[in-house]
Design a protein around this nucleic acid. Structure first.
Length: 606
RNA sequence: UGGCUUAUAGUUUAAUGGAAGAAUGCUGCGCUUCGAACGCAGUGAUGAAAGUUCGAAUCUUUCUAAGCCAACCA
């Protein structure tokens, strides 16, 4: 018999991977057929059948000319014989070979990992990945959609870090352009010198109000002009406040000191507000880019692209790229007046980022409305032969909408980020007080707890579904604290910690050997724990934190079932008590780590 | 008009081409307790039609519905 535990490479492998390796070897020995491990399907056995993992044989049996049943029996017997320390029994149903993993294997796994505080996390792998997220405009406060972006970006970065990547978190601040000038002109016209200080308002909200004000006034002026006989298009172009904003943009680009001064002042108000919000939600960046400093980038790349015949110059001297061969359209990259367009800056910034950090991969967390834009960006970079081109990935996510439709800042129909955060914290305060379990907490401890639970509920709510899915948020129905939620998982953690505190005098480190029979619920929990590394890898590969959220929820659920059914403190034997304590310890640890990958803290008590 | 995305229980959602799983809701049940923000049981779903396959929620085609994009806007 070959003992798997003696092979260091195999030891680090997941059970599923181990089974594949064994199957490859078995098939090679029994049928003299060589199969790639990747071509073997191993999945968790359905609960209605006996077994832990299942090998699906249908796709294989043709190659060794056996019926699925016969092949299942033969392979099952062989596996059992050769790897008695891994498999304890098997059964074949149709083409499914259901394998029961030996309890000793699970117990061994548990004993090796229960006190590993970095369980699930991997060593540095030398890859460097940039994650750009948040990317706010400095003319309005953040709303719920921005929160989804922030949480996704932050969490994806953490998940990649857990797989061993080095991470550079970046943010591009859209701090210039016509939309910024809109709030500037409105402030000039209507504020009478008011400031966030004089009004006691948070800076980003203060500026955002003038953005709304601009649009109100703009609409009024358009209506008046239409009444006076202008066409709609004309009115939109001729409205005085709009022309004022346009002039301001021209002055800004010309470096007019007064306009620059106003711009700096108003932006500083916004930044003060953002800093506060980022601090509460736990967003941070290693490097912040400002559009005002990057918007001229990429111009030299146009000349280079022309030389390489990637771009074409028209008679009017505008420059284009023809992407029709790739199923896309023609796209302008430089206007006839020589100024660059949005995508040109993006190319320039991509080059800049690469020169600065030499990342192997660069992830952009941007809404799905820019799917086409990002496709074009990557394609142009590839055609220009930029070394960073293939590493560009768009983490596209669906918009967060209200039951009434899209959120629109300019119309003020948004779920404000600061407000929703505050509301979630309020709700956790209410619930905590109702339950009355932490009456001995100090005011400070309570404040921290409400923050942990409120933000946990919000982050979990936004991260638990596939990023690309659109979400409709109904403010009438507040975010739940039961079921598939952050507080449920946090509660499970607090509960386990409570048990561990009560049984602190038991020596968990006692060597109890691996000869224990596991009850069904005990085994389910260990099996689930063992899958943590694989789940992190999948979430990292797909840039999808929802995989981690679903995982940690199921882990908590399985533990809760186990916990109601079987007692730890009064286990059947002392050894069983230790085993269960180890199980509880590793579960709590795994919940904590998994939640931290989502940016969610877990309390010791709640 | 073209391109991309989505469609799963009443609602919110999961499922590397392999035996549709949760949550919530609803109906019952379980606290003289290792924490009921919990557990147990029941209920109920792959938009429509065809095709490929031993096998399709998943792949192909058509249709239907929703959303986004296709600016010398950002």
């Amino acid at each position: 018999m070959v003992s798997l535990f003696l092979l260091p490479k195999l030891k680090m492998m997941s059970v599923a991977e181990l089974i594949k390796q064994c199957a490859v070897k078995a098939i090679s020995e029994v049928y003299k057929v060589e199969i790639e491990p990747a071509n073997i399907t191993v999945s968790a056995t359905k609960p209605e059948f006996e077994g832990d993992y299942t090998i699906v044989l249908f796709s294989l049996v043709k190659q060794f000319r056996k019926s699925p049943d016969a092949a299942g029996q033969e392979l099952g017997n062989y596996l059992l014989q050769q790897h008695a320390d891994l498999f304890s029994s098997f059964n074949v149903i149709k083409g499914f070979l259901n394998l029961v993993i030996a309890d000793a294997y699970w117990v061994d796994f548990l004993q090796k990992n229960y006190n590993n505080t970095s369980f699930g996390l991997k060593e540095k792998n030398g890859r460097r990945v940039m994650v750009e997220y948040s990317s706010p405009n400095t003319n309005k406060p953040l709303h719920l959609g921005h929160l989804r972006n922030n949480f996704l970006g932050w969490s994806t970065a953490e998940i990649l870090k857990a797989t061993g990547c080095e991470i550079v978190k970046t943010c591009i601040v859209n701090d210039r352009g016509i939309h910024i000038c809109k709030s500037m002109i409105a402030w000039q016209l209507f504020a009478n010198g008011a400031t966030p200080e004089s009004t006691g308002m948070k800076g980003d909200h203060f500026v955002g109000d003038y953005y709304v004000k601009f649009n109100d006034e703009y609409k009024k002026q358009i209506e008046v002009l239409i009444e006076q006989g202008s066409s709609k298009e004309d009115a939109e172009r001729q409205a005085p406040i709009f022309k004022g904003a346009q002039q301001m943009l021209i002055d800004w680009e010309a470096g007019n000191p007064d306009v620059i001064e106003l711009w700096k002042t108003m932006n500083s108000w916004v930044y003060a507000g953002f800093t506060e919000t980022y601090k509460t939600i736990g967003s941070d960046f290693d490097r912040t880019y400002y559009e005002s400093q990057t918007y001229l980038l990429g111009k030299d790349l146009i000349e280079e692209g022309l030389k390489k015949n990637v771009f074409i110059q028209e008679a009017d001297s505008s420059v284009w790229i023809d992407l029709t061969a790739d199923g896309l359209d023609r796209k302008i990259v430089r206007r006839k007046d020589g100024t660059s367009v949005y995508i040109t800056q993006d190319i320039g910034l991509a080059v800049n980022k690469f020169e600065e950090y030499k990342c192997d991969e660069s992830i952009y967390v941007i809404g799905d409305e820019q799917n086409y834009h990002m496709k074009v960006l990557k394609l142009i970079c590839q055609k220009l032969g930029l070394p960073s081109a293939d590493g560009i990935h768009h983490l596209s996510y669906g918009m967060v909408e209200l039951p009434s439709g899209k959120m629109k800042s300019r119309e003020g129909t948004v779920v404000d980020a600061d407000e929703i955060v505050e509301e979630m914290i309020d709700i956790s305060k209410q619930k905590t007080e109702e339950l009355g379990k932490v009456k001995d907490f100090t005011a400070e401890e309570l404040k921290e707890l409400y923050n942990i639970i409120g933000l946990g509920a919000l982050k979990f709510f936004l991260l638990r579904v596939d990023p690309k899915r659109r979400m409709i948020f109904n403010p009438e129905e507040s975010i739940d604290f039961h079921g598939f939620t952050g507080p449920f998982v946090q509660y499970t953690h607090a509960r386990i910690k409570s048990i561990l505190r009560k049984l602190a005098d038991v020596n968990v480190d006692l060597q109890i050997g691996n000869h224990h029979n596991l009850l069904s619920l005990e085994k389910q929990a260990v099996i689930h724990l063992e899958q943590f590394v694989t789940v992190i890898e999948e979430a990292a590969a797909e840039h999808d934190p929802s995989k981690v959220a679903i995982y940690v929820f199921n882990l908590a659920k399985i533990f809760n079932s186990f916990y109601t059914e079987h007692s730890i403190a009064s286990a059947e034997s002392e050894e069983k008590k230790i085993l269960r304590l180890q199980l509880a310890t590793l579960t709590a640890q795994t919940i904590k780590t998994a939640m931290s990958l989502l940016g969610i803290h877990v309390p010791e008590r709640m």
